[in-house]
Design a protein around this nucleic acid. Structure first.
Length: 584
RNA sequence: GCACCCGUAGCUCAGUUGGAUAGAGCGCUGGCCUCCGAAGCCAGAGGUCACAGGUUCGAAUCCUGUCGGGUGCGCCA
């Protein structure tokens, strides 16, 4: 549990005690009570809004409530002093030992510092990537992949039972196109001259090996079967091959999944029929005609009776079709069955990570989940905006038609996995992101990857120097955890202590808000505070981490920066980035 | 036409789920290395949080409307 969480509990206990004593009225809701570090650190270590939040329901003045809470807080062992400020903030100054205990935890627990039980072991499903198995992954998939992976890491750290899931869209038109394209490559492998790949088929070279595979497995025999049978065989072979490609790409990014769910298997298991039958029983499905969208009427619009889902009853703008005109299910119908399947597998919490171009799909999916679960299941959809590839300030041109789009692999090969992963989280998901090949590998302060890695490397470097120059100091974790850290009195050192102690809360906040980018920003702030302290030593040698004349203080400072390194390692670990020992 | 996302310093962006005097990097201005930690450091200027209303102790944050940008809009997935 984070320090802040602990204090929130303390405050709530105090409130209920005051209610028992009759000092506060009964039935107060305390959900809105929060304990946070104040924006301005001169206000203290922690701040709670309890008095202001309770003022209205209790029909009392905030300051009066604060006066009641203040002595109770002061009686806590870890509290040094309490002040009431502004409109009713209760500012808490902690005993210095509290932050020092946090530092000891960081040193002792290492990358596990910040683990929490917030999730209470609850199952949660994170579905991400889910790129169509029709070719290798391109950069567009990259952001969602990293986002989903880190989100899953964060939720696991916060105590949820996380399942990472990939939905394989191995049914539908694009798979037929894939099969036809592969079949062409098969004929090519047999020696036939195929010329230009026709418009509408996938032109990429990555299908050449699939053609050769088909040849080695079937010889010339495949071509003699009826076309429908050919396509069926080739579909499976080609999708499997494409999934292998995708798995290799994911591997290059360091991403693995617990589950691959197949759309085809939903069809095969009649999951769609059963999911929709349940909706039908509740009168949520009907035959009807949709209005054309106003102001943007398609040229070939004609009124048509379709099987529709009453998603407008659940907050969607209009009802949505479940069947195509040829009688087969729409993608949406399959997706309802898919989410129904997740719910049946025990997930009442689900997160889908999609590209921003699917934004128009969010409401209907949430509506569907709401309907099939009777409101019991919760779906959060995170949309990742576009990544704009740049090279020295110029946009990189991509033409999907000619098949020469930039693949994920090319990007990873050029700048490295760690850089890609980190940069993808330097913007919140719903903001577009510029990815400049030149900029992301620059070794300057405005490159957060470098800045954070550099901080970690600097700590390691100081540790190596300490081992060489002050051999009398024991640098093991247990010895550092026992260092006399109360000697750390410089304001910059106290700032670092507080920042380290804020890590568990930051992880919890990022996990509950489903916002992985907060980890990257936290790390950049921690690194900045660390570099600032390092720089203090440039002006004033007394502030350097190592002082041969003062081994005790040196030991304490080494403990401090070991804590910094632990937290950075913990954060980078969440982001799937390897902390470096030295800069090269 | 409708829906969703966005609009914060000259630029690129954060902003702890409604908190106190709105922050960072770059850029700009001014300081700091013949030497011990300068791939730099310190300080400063720079804001009507797009605009107008509303909700309340309190709004960049929530609601309504307007303007501007992006994404999408019955059989694709």
């Amino acid at each position: 549990m984070s320090l802040h969480q602990e204090f929130r509990d303390n405050v709530q206990t105090i409130i209920s005690r005051l209610v028992e004593k009759g000092a506060l009225p009964e039935g107060l809701a305390t959900n809105a009570v929060s304990v946070e570090p104040p924006r301005d650190s001169s206000h203290g270590d922690l701040s709670t809004n309890a008095a202001m939040v309770l003022a209205k329901p209790a029909k009392m003045k905030p300051r009066d409530i604060a006066d009641l809470i203040k002595p109770e807080l002061e009686s806590l062992a870890s509290v040094a002093s309490v002040e009431i400020a502004g409109p009713g903030f209760i500012n808490i100054r902690l005993e210095p030992g509290v932050w020092e205990d946090e530092l000891r935890k960081a040193i002792t627990l290492g990358v596990n510092y910040g683990d929490s039980k917030l999730g209470g072991g609850e199952k949660i499903n994170v579905e991400f990537v889910s790129a169509n198995p029709t070719g290798p992954m391109h950069v567009g998939h990259c952001r969602g992949a990293v986002f989903g992976d880190v989100l899953a890491n964060m939720l696991a750290k916060a105590g949820f039972d996380v399942t990472r899931e990939y939905y394989v869209n191995d049914a539908g038109g694009q798979i037929t196109v894939l099969a036809k394209s592969a079949l062409l490559r098969y004929r090519e492998a047999l020696g036939e001259s195929i010329g230009e790949i026709p418009e509408g088929l996938y032109p990429g070279d990555y299908l050449v090996p699939v053609g050769q595979l088909l040849k080695s497995e079937h010889g010339a025999a495949l071509g003699e079967k009826p076309e429908s049978e050919q396509l069926e065989i080739v579909s499976t072979v080609a999708t499997d091959a494409m999934l292998d490609l995708i798995r290799e790409d994911l591997d290059a990014l360091g991403i693995t999944f617990d589950t691959f769910s197949s759309e085809t298997s939903l069809h095969a298991r009649k999951s769609i029929d059963s999911a929709l039958a349940a909706l039908n029983e509740r009168g949520l499905i009907y035959e009807g005609i949709l209005e054309p969208p106003k102001g943007k009427k398609p040229d070939d619009w004609e009124p048509r009776e379709q099987t529709l889902f009453r998603s407008s009853q659940f907050g969607d703008d209009t009802d949505r079709p479940l069947k195509k005109s040829d009688g087969t299910w729409t993608y949406f119908a399959a997706d309802i069955a898919y989410h129904d399947d997740k719910i049946k597998r025990g997930f009442s919490k689900m997160i889908d990570v999609w590209g921003a171009d699917h934004g128009g799909y969010v409401k209907r999916m949430k509506a569907a989940v709401n309907a099939i679960s009777n409101g019991d299941a919760e779906l959060d959809v995170k949309l990742c905006q576009m990544v704009k590839l740049m090279r020295a300030g110029e946009p990189v041109k991509m033409s999907k038609r000619s098949g020469d789009f930039v693949t994920l692999r090319e990007v990873v090969d050029e700048v490295g996995r760690d850089v890609v992963r980190f940069i993808m989280l330097t913007r919140k998901n719903d903001a577009p992101l510029d990815f400049d090949f030149a900029h992301v590998v620059e070794q300057t302060k405005d490159n957060p990857v470098f800045y954070v890695q550099y901080a970690h490397a600097r700590v390691r470097s100081v540790m190596r120097k300490a081992a060489a120059e002050m051999p009398e100091l024991d640098l093991s974790s247990s010895a550092l955890a026992a260092a006399p850290v109360s000697l750390l009195e410089h304001s910059g050192e106290r700032v670092l202590l507080a920042k380290i102690g804020d890590w568990p809360r930051s992880v919890e906040a990022a996990a509950t808000s489903h916002e992985p980018h907060r980890i990257a920003f936290y790390l950049a702030e921690l690194a900045a505070a660390f570099h600032a302290q390092w720089n203090q030593g440039t002006d004033d040698p007394n502030l350097r981490f190592l002082d041969a004349k003062n081994p005790d203080l040196s030991h304490a400072r080494l403990a401090l920066i070991q804590g910094v390194a632990s937290v950075i390692a913990s954060g980078l670990n969440l982001m799937g980035v390897t902390p470096v020992e030295e800069m090269r």
